[in-house]
Every structure is written in C-alpha cells, then in structure tokens.
C-alpha cells in the first residue's frame, strides 16, 4: 500500500472571486485585531521574562522590566551574567544529558504501549474491553500525587529507586491513561471500510496495526509526544521523589541554583529560556503534525 491512497488530496478554497475575497478581508479586520490583541497580551509575560533575563540583579530588584525597554540606552542595566551563571554552572551539561536520558524513553515507552492498547480496545473484539476502557479513562482523574508514596514503597522494596528505570516506569504509568485515551479516540475514528478491506485481503491484526493504523495515527502520536515530552522535561516533582538530586537533571539543578532561601531567583529568568530550547526544538520539528493532531479524538466514527 502506498502513501497516496491514504492521503486525501487537499483542495484549496481558491475558487472564490477576488471581490468577495477583499470584502471578506475587511470583514475580518475586527476579528484579526482581536486575535492580535490576545496574542500581545499572552506574550507580554514572556517578553518581560526575556527582558529581565538580560538585566542585572539590582536592576530587576529596583525597577520593573518595562523600565529596561523605556531606558533602553542605559547600558549599565544590561548583562549576560544570568545566562553565564546557568550555562556554566557545575554539572549543567550532565544535567541536560540526564534529562534527555529520562525524557526520551519516558516519551517513547508510554506512546508505544498506548498505541497497542488503543488499537486493541478500538478494533479487536475480546470480552471486557469496554470495562477496561472505562477503567483507563477513570485513571485519568487520579492525581499523581496520590500515587507517590505507594509507588515509592514498591520501588524501595525492589531497589529501583533513584534509577533511570524507575523514572521511565513512573512517567510511563502517569502518562499512559491520557495517551491511551487520546490515541483511542483517533484510532477508533479510522473508517471501518479500510480495515475491513485489509482484512479481506488477508492481513493479520499485526499487519493492520503496523501498516495501516500506525501510519494513519502519526498526527495523534506526534502531538501526544509533544505533550508527554514537555511534561517529562519540565517535571520536578516526580524527579525529586523517585530520582533524588544525587544525579542532576535540568529541573532539579535549576531549582538548586536559586539557593537555599530563594535568594538567587533572578537566575531563573535565564534558566527558563535555556531549558525552553529543547522543548522548542521538539515543538517546531513536530509542529506540522501538531495542528492536525489537536483534533485527535474530537470526531469519532
């Protein structure tokens, strides 16, 4: 089966006359202005953080970040010391490496498992699958904080506390319900006729899964990868409980930089932008799938 049979040709609504087009443009101005206003408001905190991250500790303490923009030419306030402090902190390179080592498997494992599970629940007929699905969806509302102590007890008994394996398992467990639910919504919306014809051609469930369902679900898988990656990358709580601080990861190292009494919070401004880099790379490389995937599960067949 080639890709072209799967993809539907995308027709641009370009057959509209030029006149109606310009009229539509004028009618759209208030909406566009509104969207622009929201975008600006939404971006202001990030802008403030960005400006602050280049200002000295004294400047941050004395005046708001907008003073930095108003008196832009006052160069005594500008500095890259915050970035230096974070980038060249002890163990920062190690922390990035360890964070990746935790985040990548913690993204891949739950998605793989969730894809299998979603396919099985959506398309394979076995007793109890409805109940199984209800249980999985029910687990969505269990806050992970509730599981910390019981899971830690199990980990301590088996000696996987503070290991990478423990982190992968924890994030897999915490991520699976949502992943399964989202992928189920998407996979169950695949037209029945496609799978039936494949079945008629003699395809096994495994072949249908790997050759049909997986390629068709790439948008959903990609968008959930972004969610899960961001969640694991930015996680501090699970890391503190199950991984400890003996081996640094980005979030725990950054939390340490702030100091015992939070006195160096100004380095967080720079830290925020530095840690943002990796998720941004992930986001932009998967972005073309993201918008399509946002509708994952919204329309069910």
């Amino acid at each position: 089966m080639s890709d072209t049979t799967v993809k539907k040709p995308y027709v641009k609504p370009s057959a509209v006359a030029g006149e109606t087009k310009s009229r539509a443009l004028i009618a759209g101005i208030p909406a566009r202005a509104f969207i622009l206003a929201i975008v600006v408001i939404w971006t202001i905190p990030t802008l403030g953080l960005l400006v602050s991250s280049f200002r000295t500790q004294i400047a941050i303490a004395e005046t708001g970040w907008w003073h930095g923009l108003i008196n832009f030419t006052d160069f005594s306030q500008w500095t890259i010391a915050n970035y230096e402090r974070v980038l060249f902190a002890d163990d920062m390179a190690n922390a990035f490496f360890n964070s990746l080592l935790i985040t990548i498997p913690s993204t891949v494992i739950p998605i793989t498992m969730a894809a299998f599970a979603a396919y099985a629940i959506a398309w394979m007929i076995f007793p109890g699958r409805k109940i199984l699905f209800v249980i999985i969806v029910g687990l969505l509302i269990v806050p992970l904080q509730m599981a910390l102590i019981p899971v830690l007890r199990v980990y301590t008994r088996h000696g996987i506390n503070g290991t990478y394996l423990g982190m992968w398992l924890a994030h897999t467990g915490f991520g699976l319900p949502l992943a399964t639910y989202m992928l189920y919504g998407y996979i169950s919306s695949i037209p029945k006729s496609i799978l039936e014809s494949a079945h008629a051609d003699g395809a096994t469930p495994w072949m249908m899964f790997t050759r049909l369902v997986l390629p068709l679900s790439i948008p959903a898988i990609a968008s959930f990868s972004i969610f899960q990656f961001l969640w694991v990358w930015n996680d501090l709580l699970v890391a503190l409980v199950f991984f400890g601080t003996r081996r640094p990861i980005v979030t725990t190292r950054l939390a340490e930089l702030v100091g015992s009494r939070g006195q160096s919070w100004h380095v967080l401004t720079a830290g925020a932008f530095i840690t943002m880099v990796v998720p941004l790379i992930i986001f932009f490389s998967l972005q073309r799938y993201f918008v399509r995937g946002m509708m994952a599960g919204s329309v069910k067949g």
Binding site: L148, I149, P150, V151, L152, R153, Y155, T156, R157, N161, L236, L240, V241, G244, T245, R246, T252, A255, E256, V258, S260, G262
Partner: peptide, 21 residues
Amino acid sequence: VVYEGSGDFEALITVRAEGGD
C-alpha cells in the same frame, strides 16, 4: 558522606519517610 539537597525538603522528607526510603 553523601549530601543530597532540595529546596522542597519539607514536602519530600515526609514522602520519603512514608515511602520507606
């Protein structure tokens, strides 16, 4: 002597004690 530190000590020590670690 290995020292581990966290700004969230107060919350974590309870969890770790309860969790057997």
